[in-house]
């Protein structure tokens, strides 16, 4: 047989091709790309400041004539700009808290999985214990006890979300540990730390990417949840959750104050979930038929 037409195709290229075939994921990724650009640049281009109160137009419905495309709230603030500015906070929380949970989870999980034995048992038992806690209640407690501040939100959410990541990474590490290339490295006398950094972590990348993508919407949701309860970000800062909370108060008189932030939040979560799903299907060829 001729070997001429056999091109090397890395698993990453394979995954990339599978991902591009997933229409829901690609569409979602495009929407999110646009969303990020608009959220970052939008407020700078808008004629309104987020905290500007337009007393001539309080509770004005969406209209191009007034220049308030999404309408205004009770004190005449522009819903569009507030939604975009809230989006900055929500997306930032999503990103930062995910990175926090990523850093803790990957380190913890790969160490537990790689060292194994007693270390592993103790470390994972600890995870089990923390896992059984009513986690949202602790976040609320933290907010109450230490006061609301955005840094604490990052840390609190990130520090609690790492549990799943640690479990997944540990499981993956355990199975990687017994592969031949790791055994080969051990046989060559490569140090443990170097094996973890050079051989284990790069091979964990697939799962970690998938899981991180799915963590982002979770984190955004938690932040919105806190903000909705009035325990998240404080005025004049805003987030989507806080805006939905505001909007829910004026539900009957000014439904647009609820609907626009709620829509943007939902679309974002929807898209992230689809991207995560698509990545999982692409990177985990197990259930290809």
């Amino acid at each position: 047989m001729e070997l001429g037409d056999v091109k090397g195709r890395s698993p990453w290229e394979d995954a990339w091709h599978r991902l591009l075939k997933n229409r829901a994921a690609v569409t979602s990724a495009i929407i999110m790309g646009v969303m990020v650009v608009v959220v970052v640049l939008g407020p700078m281009l808008s004629p309104w400041e987020g905290d500007f109160t337009d007393w001539d137009h309080t509770f004005s419905p969406p209209s191009f004539a007034t220049g308030h495309w999404f309408g205004t709230d009770a004190v005449g603030r522009d819903i569009l700009v507030r939604t975009l500015e809230g989006g900055r906070i929500s997306l930032l929380v999503g990103l930062v808290a995910t990175l926090v949970s990523l850093a803790i989870g990957v380190t913890y999980g790969s160490v537990a999985g790689y060292y194994g034995g007693y270390t592993d048992r103790v470390m994972m038992r600890a995870v089990d214990i923390v896992y059984a806690m009513p986690f949202m209640f602790f976040v609320i407690l933290l907010m109450v006890v230490f006061g609301r501040n955005i840094f604490l939100i990052f840390v609190a959410i990130g520090a609690i979300n790492w549990l799943d990541m640690a479990r997944i990474v540990r499981g993956q590490t355990l199975s990687l540990k017994n592969t031949e290339f790791v055994e080969a490295a051990q046989a060559c006398g490569v140090q443990r730390r170097d094996i973890i950094v050079r051989h284990i972590v790069p091979n964990l990348l697939g799962v970690v990417i998938v899981y991180a993508t799915l963590t982002i919407p979770q984190v955004i949701l938690v932040e919105s949840f806190l903000s909705f309860l009035g325990l998240g970000v404080q005025e004049p800062m805003s987030s989507w959750g806080a805006l939905v909370n505001d909007g829910a108060q004026d539900l009957e008189s000014a439904p647009w104050t609820l609907i626009f932030p709620a829509l943007v939040l939902t679309v974002t979560l929807y898209c992230f979930n689809y991207i995560g799903d698509g990545l999982r299907d692409a990177l985990d060829p197990k259930d290809r038929l």
């Binding site: 919105s224 949840f225 909705f228 959750g241 539900l251 609820l258 709620a262 939902t266 929807y270 979930n273």
Partner: peptide, 22 residues
């Protein structure tokens, strides 16, 4: 189902109230 996972319940609730109550 994906929509059900993605819509937070504090968004669903006001919308349900708006529709079925208001």
């Amino acid at each position: 189902a994906m929509l059900g996972i993605s819509i937070p319940n504090f968004v669903i609730a006001p919308l349900l109230i708006l529709l079925f109550a208001v």
